[in-house]
């Protein structure tokens, strides 16, 4: 594949794009059409292996796994996007202000940030959920807030460097206000690190959602989500191993695709 400037994209980048397009296509179709009703039970068909009628087999309630993966991945994606949106937008604002103005508030917020990021994030999410209770909205909120520090840190460190650059000094000289300098002059210069951070953040959100749902704290039954399906599959690993494979692969491919793309973008910019 040839880029506008004549260089070729790396193999990994192209592979990432292909995997992601495939996965997104499956999810997109899932919003409008699934072969079966993902929540319709059929005891007669329970735990049947993959066949022409049920391409990925059925689960312990006789539900079609393909349909559930399509719907479940959609749910997982929507949750992940919402989490990243909350974390990245608030994190960018916090990072921009602390990085640009510095001072004691910056010190305090960054110390707090250090403390929060040094904790394993799933733990914090657990504590959060223990207070607010399980459910999709609660984990969007909990994980969204937990994602703020990492974006704040990325954006802040860019701002700390960029605000010393001469073009920012120049903008000050021209009489541009602080907000204009921060969001018109400096912010576009952070996209080099922000875009890969968004992709990686999406991956982390998918993994976190899956993890919490796996522990039974995320999406509640009967709604399907990839982590939830893996939790159910664990009990039937002996009888119907295909049950675990499908949602697990879906998560893996999603994460793989995005991280290959993000890796490609980073190499690109050197």
């Amino acid at each position: 594949m040839i880029k506008p400037n004549g260089n070729t994209y790396s193999f990994n980048y192209v592979l990432g794009l292909s995997i992601t397009s495939l996965v997104l296509l499956i999810v997109l179709i899932g919003f409008f059409y699934t072969p079966y009703d993902p929540n319709k039970m059929n005891v007669a068909l329970k735990n049947s292996p993959p066949s022409l009628r049920h391409l990925l087999g059925t689960d312990n309630f006789g539900r079609d796994i393909l349909s559930r993966v399509m719907k479940g991945a959609g749910t997982t994606y929507i949750i992940a996007v919402a989490i990243v949106f909350i974390g990245a937008s608030l994190g960018t604002i916090v990072g921009a202000f602390t990085g640009y103005f510095g001072g004691w508030l910056d010190e305090v917020i960054m110390r707090l940030n250090d403390v929060l990021t040094s904790f394993p994030s799933i733990l914090l999410a657990l504590v959060f959920v223990s207070i607010f209770g399980p459910g999709s909205y609660n984990i969007i909120f909990a994980l969204g807030v937990l994602f703020i520090p990492s974006y704040a840190r990325v954006v802040r460190s860019e701002f700390v460097v960029l605000k010393e650059r001469d073009f920012v000094k120049n903008a000050e000289l021209m009489g541009a206000g602080s907000l204009r300098i921060m969001f018109v002059h400096i912010l576009p210069n952070t996209k080099r690190v922000l875009i890969p951070a968004l992709l990686i953040g999406f991956n982390n959100a998918v993994l976190a959602e899956a993890g919490l749902s796996f522990l039974g704290l995320g999406v509640q039954p009967p709604e399907a989500s990839l982590g939830r399906m893996l939790a159910e599959a664990q009990s039937y690993l002996l009888d119907s191993p295909w049950y675990a494979i499908a949602p697990g692969l879906m998560i893996t491919l999603t994460v793989l695709g995005f991280s290959l793309i993000s890796g490609g973008l980073e190499n690109e910019q050197g």
Binding site: L230, A233, I251, T252, V255
Partner: peptide, 12 residues
């Protein structure tokens, strides 16, 4: 690839 496999799926 290995970074993309969630540890609990790997466990399964």
């Amino acid at each position: 690839v290995f970074m993309s496999v969630p540890p609990f799926f790997l466990g399964l």
